[in-house]
Nucleic acid binder design. Structure first.
Length: 278
DNA sequence: TGCCCCTGATTTCTTACATCA
DNA sequence: GATGATGTAAGAAATCAGGGG
């Protein structure tokens, strides 16, 4: 279907993931660990579903002539794709009949209606009430559990609720990544400026030392300098090791003084690398 | 009217887990 | 009991496409 269309886009996606540093394995795994815990207690899918039903709801045939793969109606069998010769099926719910009726009700409720010939299909827009409830649930927990109950409450299909949560997570993460990038950018600029200032200060001190060694002139040139950006931040957001009193870590400290005894470990947590500072 | 942005939906891939030999 | 193969579900990432401003 659309497999061929997708491949040429992979490079761009990889570049984005690398540049933002948020797309890859570690963060992904960590997120999975924290969000998929509920699955641990789930019974075996095989025990739950002794048989698969491949029922196609009415709208599938009604919208089939729309063309393309995107924007299509969600089905009780939401996707049937061939990837690398392996067929994969995802059965959303056993009773497709209920799904179809619920979908029809949802469309009616959201003002979505198909033309008689089925050639046009309006995009579903969630009502304010539906969005508000979804947002509330998302604030409680960013993963959906249980989706069927919420879908019933919203008069939507479980698949639609599931997609909403997926999109919400993805876009929340994207926003957070942008915020983090901006923050790091400002940190970098501030540190660069601070570095320049210290270099100047060092030069001035050296000049003073060799020119006219006077204790009265010992006032640091930087006394009136504003605090660098990272010093204006809440302490919890900084990566400062109280042991080595350095921003950014012990690797540099260890390099400078390899014989330095290792202090008791009490490091701040780095919100960006999710690791200890040192 | 074209553009931008938001958002619902789809596709592909990865990972964790369960089951079986 | 340990181990590898296999199947499944869940979710992330990338993308498409409709629609409103």
């Amino acid at each position: 279907m659309a497999q061929e269309d997708v491949h040429h886009l992979d490079d761009a996606g990889l570049a984005l993931g690398l540049s933002l540093g948020g797309g890859g394995g570690g963060a992904y795994d960590a997120a999975r660990q924290s969000t998929t815990g509920s699955r641990l207690s789930m019974p075996s899918p095989r025990a739950l579903e002794p048989s698969l039903t491949l029922s196609m709801p009415d709208e599938a045939t009604a919208t089939g002539s729309g063309g393309g793969c995107g924007g299509g109606a969600a089905h009780s069998v939401s996707s049937l794709s061939v990837a690398g010769g392996v067929k994969r099926e995802r059965v959303e719910e056993a009773d497709g009949e209920r799904a179809s009726s619920t979908a029809a009700a949802a469309r009616a409720g959201a003002g979505v209606e198909d033309d008689d010939d089925g050639s046009t299909r309006k995009k579903l827009r969630l009502t304010k009430e539906q969005s508000a409830l979804l947002e509330d649930r998302f604030k409680e927990h960013s993963t959906l559990n249980p989706k069927v109950a919420l879908a019933k409450q919203l008069n939507l299909r479980p698949r639609q609720v599931e997609v909403w949560f997926q999109n919400r997570r993805a876009r929340t993460k994207l926003k957070q990544t942008e915020v983090d990038c901006e923050f790091l950018k400002r940190c970098c600029e501030s540190l660069t400026e601070e570095n320049r200032r210290l270099q100047r200060e060092l030069q001035e001190l050296r000049a003073l030392k060799f020119a006219a060694p006077s204790p009265a002139a010992a006032a640091p040139p930087s006394a009136a300098a504003p605090a660098p950006f990272y010093m204006q931040l809440p302490a919890a957001t900084l990566t400062i090791c109280p042991s080595c009193e350095r921003l950014g870590g012990p690797a540099a400290a260890a390099k400078a003084d390899p014989d330095r005894p290792k202090p008791a470990t009490h490091h701040f947590f780095n919100p960006f690398t999710h690791s200890a500072a040192c």
